[in-house]
Design a binder for these strands. Structure first.
Lengths: 90, 90
DNA sequence: TTGACATGCAAGTCGTCACTTGCCTATCGT
DNA sequence: ACGATAGGCAAGTGACGACTTGCATGTCAA
């Protein structure tokens, strides 16, 4: 999961899904290109989405030929807690 | 910074520094080997510490021939916030 | 001052990762 | 049915990352 976050393009994808959840692969490609200036290929984005899904950060739902991608921030929550648990004031 | 967290050994180092802050390189080496079962060389740990320091997660202080490593969790805090900022109830 | 201790530097190796390339499957509209 | 759209699979390439190896620097105790 930390490895999934290690790539800047994947973090931008999470940004994009935070702004508008449930996008398809092509929608994400288009918005990354226009809004974020990233010129990544469809296959590259697809592989990034696979990585994010394997990490549990993205869940997918199929409807016909469309596959919608939803962000899931649950795996992120233990991150900060992990290294601040034994410190006072938390 | 996310790349610094992508490595499991580095995350274990942060765990160790959370448990006992201000350790030297050799102390970290010893405790990783005994408590966490990691058989990493001194040089490997040293390079991991460099990576963590570059990421701002570790700060160092020198005293004579000893170099103490202190964890700094400040860079971790924006992580979760980044992708939950615009969602309700947060 | 000399040897042991704690750390630093740099080149090289090997595996992994991001990306491409090429082709394939599936679904929808007409 | 046929073309167009949305997505999937897999091999190959180039670069980066983790680790090793070997030596060098700096510090302290005796």
């Amino acid at each position: 999961m930390f490895k999934a976050l290690a790539d800047g393009t994947r973090r931008t994808i999470l940004d994009e899904l935070t702004e508008q959840d449930g996008q398809t692969l092509f929608e994400i490609c288009a918005r990354l290109a226009t809004k974020h200036g990233l010129a990544s290929s469809r296959q590259a984005i697809s592989q990034h989405l696979d990585a994010l899904e394997s990490a549990g950060l993205v869940r997918t739902s199929r409807e016909g030929r469309y596959k919608f991608h939803h962000i899931d921030t649950a795996p992120l929550e233990p991150i900060v807690e992990r290294w601040l648990a034994e410190r006072p004031g938390r």
